[in-house]
Design a protein around this nucleic acid. Structure first.
Lengths: 333, 333
DNA sequence: TTGTAGGCGTTATCAT
DNA sequence: ATGATAACGCCTACAA
């Protein structure tokens, strides 16, 4: 059992409440007592119990962040950005991973609520019910990423971003364009898929079901999906990927299959993680304004925590970054 | 104020203790009451306060993990592996980043202690005092990575790993071998540096101070360090990097400087993160057995939490992975 | 089977 | 300037 305020009180020959006040630098405590108590506290290795403190103050000064996988740099970058602002504002950040499991996501949200975090940010939610509709279950502010139908959400303009990517590929002359999707439960996936289909339709390019394959947003997932696409009866000349992790996995698979990028195959990612500029060839991708997004997320959450009612969903611009993984349609053999 | 056990008691017309027992499926509560209470609890959106519960049970069933940067895949991979076992054993994992700041590292450890986590894992500690010597300040189990002098530590065999990497480069004919280090406070950095110096000495290769540059283990840091090395009066023919992030940054800088790898420059990393196999060219590196390491870390911590005394430090094997970023010394121009 | 009472470690409101 | 005392939400003897 850790050392408590009572132990110090006993050692100092004062009341527990005096110790509490001395430690929190209460104005009406003699300097002498303060010094004595502070010294004693340090000496005895006292660390206040946040459990007890939060219980009485009814405030944990903590927020929770749920992410799907700590292995995706885009997601961790977002967390980093969130933490920065949170710390400035005196909040601690607790973080856990759902591993793409919707049930676990709900468990984690519930666990954070159990810890009485003041609010929660869910990055890449896999749950298809709006948290606002579950306010009886989770009566605390929950902010999401990329859920354009939810009131409390910060998104990148996924439809526009995906549209630009596909239009660019079409301009380059591609007609057999594949999309490596993420799980259907991923909220941002549908937006990107829809744009993909719309642009193809607008260009009178038939949508080939074989060219849409589902993956999991990991490097291995991307590699596997690429292999599936290559074994198609008629393989694509360009691949648009749900995210950069997938795209980099694709790049790896293509390299192994001795298919040159972009000469024989164009590849476009999404997110613009740092690695995108460092892979081979440097990846063309749709940039999400990650830092900005993180800041908006935490600011929105803090606003909700402070009881603001007029909180509107935000949509941030997506930007097509052209590097070297995309090129003109290869001349037919 | 969230709904409490008292609210349910009032609504059900029973005593709070009855609610508590019903909810925890106490044997001597009538099934009918249990059903009624459970239904009510769900309906009212009750989530137990872990603060209050932990306070009375004196157990949080939680461990804390401190990492330096969430942006390093090696570190997050470790966390993933830790979380898996922790969850199995019924522990929650809380995680925070120190951003390479030793003071913040101590703050975070202290904050976890304040939350009364049962133990703490510090990945990549920046603090040079052993936590065991601070047991008056932190009277809870603290396990470290890569601190071979500490009793509670799981390490990769850094000296052997670095030695193999440098010996391999020497065998390839390199004599001007650079080392891009990490901050001196990084515990694993010194081991690798020492091996570097020892192997060079053993091979009668003079150590050139200009070929040892300090960096921060990030992609940008690696790129910057590479540029420094290239502007040397006599630049190296091979670069050994503290970690893969650094090495990949180096690869980027070399590509930009039109220096071909491995024809004109060999590059070796450390960690073997997933991206290492996917970059250009695929990175030769020293593999840390990340999954295993994570499992050992959490098992060691759990053993300490359970009061086991005979806990010995563990050293795991390092393996040199040869890919395509290394080659024979280029013929002099 | 259920109610009562005490306490976990704090802070906060009274007094003194 | 300091000491009692109550309360936060929960669990757990001890009673009934």
């Amino acid at each position: 059992m850790a050392i408590s305020i009572k132990d110090i009180a006993k050692a100092a020959g004062v009341a527990p409440s005096t110790v509490s006040r001395a430690l929190s630098d209460h104005p009406r405590i003699s300097q002498e007592t303060k010094d004595r108590i502070n010294h004693l506290a340090k000496e005895m290795g006292y660390t206040p119990s946040l459990l007890a403190r939060s219980l009485v103050t009814q405030d944990t000064a903590t927020i929770g962040v749920v992410i799907t996988m700590a292995s995706d740099p885009f997601l961790t970058h977002l967390v980093t950005s969130i933490e920065e602002v949170a710390q400035e504002q005196g909040y601690s950040v607790l973080m856990s991973s759902s591993y793409l499991n919707p049930d676990r996501e709900l468990e984690l949200v519930s666990a954070f609520h159990g810890r009485r975090t003041k609010g929660i940010i869910v990055i890449g939610s896999q749950v298809d019910v709006d948290y606002l509709q579950m306010r009886d279950r989770f009566p605390l502010p929950v902010v999401l990423t990329n859920c354009r139908t939810c009131p409390y959400s910060v998104s990148t303009d996924n439809p526009a971003g995906a549209r630009r990517a596909i239009e660019y590929l079409v301009q380059l002359g591609h007609r057999r364009i594949a999309y490596i999707a993420n799980q259907r439960s991923y909220r941002s996936n549908l937006d990107r898929l829809t744009s993909y289909q719309q642009v193809l339709a607008a260009c009178n390019i038939p949508v080939d079901k074989d060219l849409i394959v589902e993956s999991d947003g990991t490097l291995q997932g991307g590699s596997a999906a690429a292999q599936t696409l290559l074994s198609c009866s008629q393989s694509p000349t360009a691949i648009f990927c749900f995210n950069d992790m997938t795209a980099i996995g694709v790049l790896g698979a293509l390299q192994q299959a001795k298919i040159r990028v972009p000469e024989q195959m164009s590849v476009v990612g999404f997110d613009d993680i740092e690695f995108a500029a460092y892979c081979s060839p440097p990846l063309s991708t749709v940039r999400q304004p990650t830092d900005l997004m993180g800041r908006r997320l935490i600011h929105m959450l803090l606003a909700l925590i402070q009881g603001q009612e007029d909180v509107a969903p935000e949509v941030l611009p997506a930007e097509l970054i052209i590097r070297e993984s995309t090129g003109s349609l290869p001349a037919p053999a």
